[in-house]
Simulated scan of single mutants.
Amino acid sequence: MLEKHRSLRGTLTSKIKESVFAVFGKNILPPINTKASALEISR
């Protein structure tokens, strides 16, 4: 059950990411390094 939940969450996350980049484009939204500090991300 937990594995199915993780799979659904991953699928939903991927769809959201695709939609955001489709609307705003990759030039406007640079990728964020998930290991970056909060200060680096806010810049």
Rank of each mutant, 00 (worst) to 15 (best):
residue 1 M to Y: 08
residue 1 M to N: 06
residue 2 L to K: 10
residue 2 L to E: 09
residue 3 E to S: 12
residue 3 E to V: 05
residue 4 K to V: 15
residue 5 H to F: 15
residue 5 H to G: 04
residue 5 H to C: 10
residue 6 R to A: 14
residue 6 R to Y: 11
residue 7 S to G: 06
residue 8 L to N: 12
residue 8 L to R: 10
residue 8 L to F: 11
residue 9 R to L: 14
residue 10 G to R: 14
residue 10 G to L: 03
residue 11 T to I: 15
residue 11 T to A: 13
residue 11 T to E: 10
residue 11 T to C: 13
residue 12 L to N: 11
residue 13 T to L: 04
residue 14 S to P: 02
residue 14 S to V: 08
residue 14 S to F: 04
residue 14 S to R: 07
residue 15 K to V: 13
residue 16 I to R: 12
residue 17 K to M: 10
residue 18 E to Y: 04
residue 19 S to M: 13
residue 21 F to G: 00
residue 22 A to P: 01
residue 23 V to H: 12
residue 23 V to A: 14
residue 23 V to I: 11
residue 24 F to P: 03
residue 24 F to N: 09
residue 26 K to S: 08
residue 26 K to D: 06
residue 26 K to P: 06
residue 26 K to E: 05
residue 27 N to Y: 01
residue 28 I to Y: 07
residue 28 I to V: 14
residue 29 L to A: 08
residue 29 L to N: 02
residue 30 P to Q: 11
residue 30 P to L: 06
residue 31 P to E: 11
residue 31 P to F: 05
residue 31 P to M: 03
residue 32 I to M: 03
residue 34 T to R: 01
residue 34 T to E: 07
residue 35 K to E: 03
residue 35 K to V: 01
residue 36 A to C: 10
residue 36 A to Y: 00
residue 37 S to V: 03
residue 40 E to Q: 07
residue 40 E to M: 06
residue 40 E to K: 03
residue 42 S to M: 08
residue 43 R to P: 00
